[in-house]
Design a protein around this nucleic acid. Structure first.
Lengths: 326, 326
DNA sequence: CTGAAAGCGCTAACAC
DNA sequence: GTGTTAGCGCTTTCAG
């Protein structure tokens, strides 16, 4: 910038004015500055700008895995809102590892992102308190924060799972299995609660062998499926606790001869063609809502932390309407 | 940092040394500094650090749409490599708009990312020349750069499409349709070339009505499908030019009574259960390879721009092996 | 082993 | 309209 000023024969501040489109520069001067900029291939260094202005015009998003089809649309929705506010998005995948989540979140804070959106892997977010006090707005999505008070935007996991299980019960099932994510994860627990609530509503007693929480690794899900279907008291229907479980369970059930009713949590591509009944949540709406809340905070809005819960929708497509196999 | 120094009763530089784990500080002094850091909730401001050091330890990725299941895994793979090199990843979606691609790429350069990975939407990247001269390493993925010389990591679109079309021909088809992406996009053109090459190899003449390039919007793809199947010289098989087209085409074909053979480009989740034959490319390998090349450049490696082409794999699952309907 | 001073590239606040 | 000065928070250089 100094070089540009020298070459254009003007002061530093004039160049700054031109670069930032501020008023108060004669067209002639402006032209000279523009020429110098072109000639030198000058591009403003935003790092320096940030240092001076205090705002980075960027926000951070910590999620579990960008490669998961649930998080892609969520991230994209966040990006769109950020873009509308002139901000860039830095994302990081925690790989469902609490330590990595913390490391990432703090790295983003060190970069002085203006705000942070977190899909937590861990259950204790007190490490973010100093950062939040220091002014980094933080919103949690998909799962609430642990041990701190912070905004959260969630799907109605409890209600969705309850509706899914109730749907299977309405179609005649009495022995229903639930395969969910790790019990450390809030949504997994909520969905299990929803399943239990529906069973209880119908006066059904849940056999321990029908419930399996754990990793979403295909091998684990396959085992869980086999166990539920093969035991002394086999289930006639299965409710899956998230999109990864759904995919593996669907594959597993397709390989069996006896039909098993099935409801998945999260819609997945081509589930329509396969006739898979699902409880759909709107990943993009989650991201959008969280980002909007974040930017409202960045715009100075400052009331208490709030929790927003988005509805889920049960989409019947066939698999959830199968009667119990004899 | 100044505050920390004051509180610990030491010089600024000593705090800096402690924060950065540099040698040359007595354990006792270090402890005092650490205490002050804790007490004040100090966190180094990386913006200032960047300004001084010149490197941001971040790279930018401009892609088409993070919500597209093809780009999620690609982005995640880039992130993993970046992480291994201690860098963060800033992504942006161009929405297949060349102007937005440029705007994004330049915004990333203004942030002084150390390197840039671009999945181009546009066909002219001369706007990046000043940036590259200024030292921002740049690698193109999935599609090559236009009008500049730069590293590129691509899939073998030509070979993949050719193999796909040849596969259909080998199963008895003579009238084969091709539905691809916009002709502005390199991969769309390459895949069309591959299709034409296979047809020519087999001595088949392509009817203009069998080829349709354009947007991947479902409506457009549906129309293209209907036109190919409904015309005076209807096709008995269709080759899709990318994953979005594949999804819509599969839905469309499933809704018809007469079977139509089908090969998709890009594997999609659950395609196995639907028996969809595809030409698979490895999105994660594309991302990983590109990121590795980028970091090699950042490490000072400096030979000519190179082009890497990754193989595609044809996965037969049934739809591509159907004989021509009578 | 430690600290003071200079300056990275920019913008805010005030001159002129 | 335009230029000058100070300083954002850190690291580098060099002196103690």
């Amino acid at each position: 910038m100094k070089d540009v000023a020298a070459r254009a024969g003007v002061g530093l501040k004039t160049v700054s004015r031109v670069v930032n489109g501020e008023a108060g520069v004669t067209p002639d001067t402006e032209r000279r500055v523009q020429e110098a900029i072109e000639a030198l291939g000058f591009r403003r260094n935003d790092s320096a700008r940030v240092l001076r202005k205090g705002r980075t015009a960027s926000i951070g998003l910590v999620l579990e895995d960008l490669a998961d089809p649930f998080y892609g649309p969520l991230s994209r929705a966040v990006e769109e809102v950020a873009r509308a506010h002139g901000a860039l998005l830095i994302n990081g995948s925690s790989a469902e590892d609490p330590e990595r989540e913390q490391e990432l979140a703090l790295a983003l804070c060190a970069r002085r992102v203006d705000g942070l959106i977190v899909i937590p892997a861990g259950t204790d977010h007190r490490y973010l308190e100093p950062e939040m006090r220091a002014g980094i707005a933080t919103v949690f999505v998909d799962r609430p924060a642990g041990r701190i008070d912070a905004d959260a935007v969630l799907s109605d996991s409890f209600g969705g799972a309850r509706a899914g299980a109730a749907h299977l019960i309405a179609h005649g099932h009495r022995r229903i299995g639930f395969i969910g994510d790790q019990p450390r994860i809030h949504t997994a627990v909520e969905r299990l609660r929803g399943y239990r609530a529906a069973m209880e509503d119908a006066g059904l007693v849940v056999d321990d062998a029908w419930v399996s929480l754990g990793s979403t690794e295909p091998a684990r899900v396959r085992e869980a499926t086999a166990a539920m279907l093969g035991g002394p008291n086999p289930v006639t229907a299965i409710l899956a606790g998230n999109n990864r479980v759904t995919v593996t369970a669907v594959r597993e059930l397709a390989a069996r001869e006896r039909p098993v009713a099935f409801v998945g949590f999260d819609d997945i591509e081509l589930a329509d063609l396969l006739g898979i009944t699902v409880i759909a949540q709107d990943a993009a709406a989650l991201g959008r809502t969280a980002a909007e809340r974040l930017f409202r905070r960045l715009d100075g809005f400052d009331d208490d932390a709030s929790r927003t819960v988005l509805e889920t929708v049960l989409i019947p497509r066939g698999s959830g309407e199968l009667p119990p196999a004899p």
